[in-house]
């Protein structure tokens, strides 16, 4: 095991990103992903271990203009119980409802679920559907810098993303969906929640006069990263949501998904489920 040289539990964001600028920092919040990875040797601790749970302003859910901002340290339980999320983004509440177990939801942070960059990350899927962006903060030239990266562009591979080691993910931001926004999320598994998704499908868009627009489709565990299924989106975009477009969407889902075999499921079963869930979610959206 690598030696940890210092432990930090900063109160301010400045303090945190300054430390990260100095290099080789392992960040934790709830620890629910970090601990199994360090225990198994899959991940090593850096020279500095930093607990970000005490940084002021890093957790909480708030409206900011026409957007909703969720602090990175906000727990999944907080998302699940938040009245604003329930009202404005029920698809996110639905994913939180089906996230791991109660004990994990109470500890796991939303930012951590994103930074873990698992293709099966359950909170990522609805955030892709909501077209969320992440805020990344760093310290450069004596000042706090932030940049915003669309979540869709965040992931580069399994457990890999565009966040630099000196950057801290501070928040997730998405525009409040319009009143005609419809969306739903479905994940598989014989257990209601305590399950690493075999696959998940989330679909959302604006449905008015029977026509589906601004469609965004996300799939989990069918590609090296959480996936925006552009083929499915194209099959639905600007079309009436009906049996024909649903059939086209299911066919596109088959093409978009490129799953692998692993201990949890075969590629065949994942593809099969993606098609089943695409149809199911669209039917749910239609109110069937």
């Amino acid at each position: 095991m690598q030696e940890i040289k210092s432990y930090l539990a900063p109160r301010s964001l400045d303090e945190a990103v300054k430390a990260m600028a100095a290099g080789d920092v392992t960040v934790f919040c709830g620890g629910t992903d970090l601990t199994p990875q360090t225990d198994s040797g899959a991940k090593r601790y850096g020279a500095t271990l930093m607990n970000i749970r005490r940084i002021e302003g890093l957790s909480g859910i708030a409206e900011a203009g026409d957007s909703i901002r969720i602090g990175a340290a906000t727990t999944v339980t907080e998302v699940r119980r938040d009245p604003l999320i329930a009202r404005a983004a029920p698809i996110l509440a639905e994913a939180a409802e089906h996230f791991a177990s109660d004990q994990i939801r109470n500890a796991a942070s939303l930012g951590g679920n994103i930074c873990n960059a698992s293709p099966a990350g359950d909170m990522i899927n609805p955030l892709l559907v909501l077209d969320a962006a992440v805020e990344l903060a760093s310290w450069a030239d004596g000042a706090l810098r932030t940049r915003s990266v669309p979540l869709e562009n965040f992931f580069t591979g399994p457990r890999r993303h565009v966040k630099r080691p000196d950057e801290l993910l501070t928040a997730i931001v998405f525009r409040k969906p319009a009143t005609d926004f419809v969306g739903w999320f479905r994940k598989s598994g014989p257990r209601p929640a305590l399950e690493i998704s075999t696959v998940s499908v989330g679909i959302g868009g604006n449905l008015s006069d029977g026509v589906f627009r601004n469609v965004r489709v996300a799939m989990g565990s069918v590609a090296p990263t959480p996936l925006r299924a552009h083929g499915v989106e194209a099959a639905l975009e600007g079309r009436p949501l009906d049996a024909d477009s649903i059939r086209a969407a299911v066919a596109a889902a088959d093409a978009d998904a490129t799953p692998i075999d692993d201990v949890r499921a075969s590629a065949w079963y994942r593809k099969h489920l993606v098609k089943v869930f695409t149809e199911e979610v669209l039917n749910h959206v239609l109110g069937n």
């Binding site: 257990r191 305590l194 690493i196 201990v263």
Partner: peptide, 23 residues
């Protein structure tokens, strides 16, 4: 127990699924 040429592929509760209360 998922065995691949004698090696256990799922030595954890995450992938070896015991019944839980809702089931």
């Amino acid at each position: 127990m998922l065995l691949d040429r004698g090696l256990l592929k799922n030595p954890c509760f995450r992938d070896y699924k015991l019944l839980t209360a809702p089931e």
